[in-house]
């Protein structure tokens, strides 16, 4: 049938273009994660009336590079009680599921007759199942944390893994339901089409409740404070990644930040109108990146502002408040749209 063996897509490109796009996305991730890391440390410093890292390079700009070099040169330690091959696999799963999610984030619409006379979509892939793609891999992301914690053979790791499992499952339901409102309003699951249908009004306005639920659930899904119970350092050392060192820990760490970028991208596409913004068409990807950056700064700001929740509070909030609210939001949206 088509050139693509898997999944029907709304815009078919040649395999070569796809490979180039995959490399570009991966390069983007590798560049953007250290930058966000530096931004976070700088901002956190300012929030706490410090300077933040300022020794390595001009204004501390080379700090992430030094961190990566440090992690790379560190000893790879495996506890006696651990399952070694699984400890190697777990960070890889985390990285994989995080990067794959980035593939559906649209940075712009299809460009016709752009480079070499061909047309390109400014996104990794525009699958017909759209946002379900993110949820499918979000569901698998759990195994990275879970296997990592379980395979470490340590109590703290195990507790952290169990917490993350409970937390991810609890808040994924709310996360999904909060987006149902947008999907109903746009009448499509594809992120590109959802962005296209926002050219009059961004969905953050009609779907404000859904947006709030999404943001809260997103904090829990990415294990960011105030929902960083899986690695609550005051209670369980560092949770699932207690026994991980060197670049394996670095992978977990990186996956967390990629997840943050991915969630910011999804929020941008679903609620903030994606590439829509004033200015000429070539500004589209810039707009997406600016909006994503807004979300990233919000993530950092919240981390500096709010204390960590207690575990039972987290669970009670997720099931008793967020889930009913998300269900109600989806229901009301469905009634309004169909009426």
């Amino acid at each position: 049938m088509t050139a693509l063996p898997l999944a029907s897509v709304s815009f078919v490109e040649s395999t070569g273009v796809q490979i180039v796009k995959a490399i570009v996305i991966f390069a983007f991730v590798l560049v953007v994660v250290p930058l966000i890391l530096l931004l976070e440390r700088k901002l956190l410093g300012r929030f706490q009336a410090r300077l933040g890292p300022n020794r390595v390079g001009p204004f501390g700009l080379l700090q992430p590079l030094a961190d990566v070099l440090k992690l790379l040169s560190k000893e790879r330690f495996t506890p006696r009680t651990a399952v070694p091959w699984m400890m190697a696999m777990a960070p890889a799963i985390s990285i994989f599921t995080a990067v794959v999610t980035l593939a559906i984030i649209p940075f712009g619409d299809v460009r016709h007759n752009a480079l070499f006379g061909a047309s390109y979509g400014l996104y990794g892939i525009d699958v017909s199942i759209g946002i379900l793609w993110a949820f499918a891999f979000g569901a698998l992301a759990f195994y990275g944390l879970m296997l990592g914690g379980w395979a470490s053979g340590s109590k703290y790791s195990f507790l952290g893994a169990m917490r993350s499992a409970a937390q991810l499952i609890s808040y994924e339901v709310s996360l999904g339901l909060s987006l149902v409102g947008v999907v109903i309003t746009a009448g499509s699951l594809s992120l590109t089409e959802i962005v296209n249908s926002q050219d009059h009004i961004w969905y953050v306005v009609p779907q404000f409740v859904g947006f709030c639920i999404f943001m809260v659930a997103a904090f829990a899904e990415t294990n960011r404070p105030p929902f960083d119970l899986p690695e609550a350092d005051a209670e369980i050392v560092a949770g699932y990644n207690t026994e991980f060192g060197g670049m394996r820990f670095g992978s977990f760490f990186m996956a967390e930040y990629i997840n943050m970028v991915a969630i910011a991208g999804i929020a941008t596409a679903m609620f903030l109108g994606g590439w829509h913004g004033p200015g000429p068409g070539w500004l589209d990807p810039i707009w997406v990146i600016v909006k994503m950056l807004l979300f990233v700064v919000l993530f950092i700001w919240i981390r500096a502002t709010l204390p960590r929740l207690r575990y039972d509070q987290l669970m009670a909030f997720g099931w008793k408040v967020l889930l009913p609210l998300a269900t109600l939001n989806a229901l009301v949206t469905a009634i309004v749209v169909s009426a």
């Binding site: 999944a7 029907s8 699958v127 017909s128 199942i129 379900l132 793609w133 949820f135 499918a136 891999f137 979000g138 569901a139 698998l140 759990f142 879970m146 379980w150 195990f158 893994a161 169990m162 499992a165 409970a166 991810l168 499952i169 994924e172």
Partner: peptide
């Protein structure tokens, strides 16, 4: 595609997580 995604979300994601929980 939808069935594949549902398979991942529901079975690999939700149901199996409970299995892993209990067994762990």
């Amino acid at each position: 595609e939808f069935i594949a995604a549902a398979q991942l979300v529901v079975y690999a994601g939700a149901v199996m997580v409970l299995y892993v929980f209990v067994v762990a």
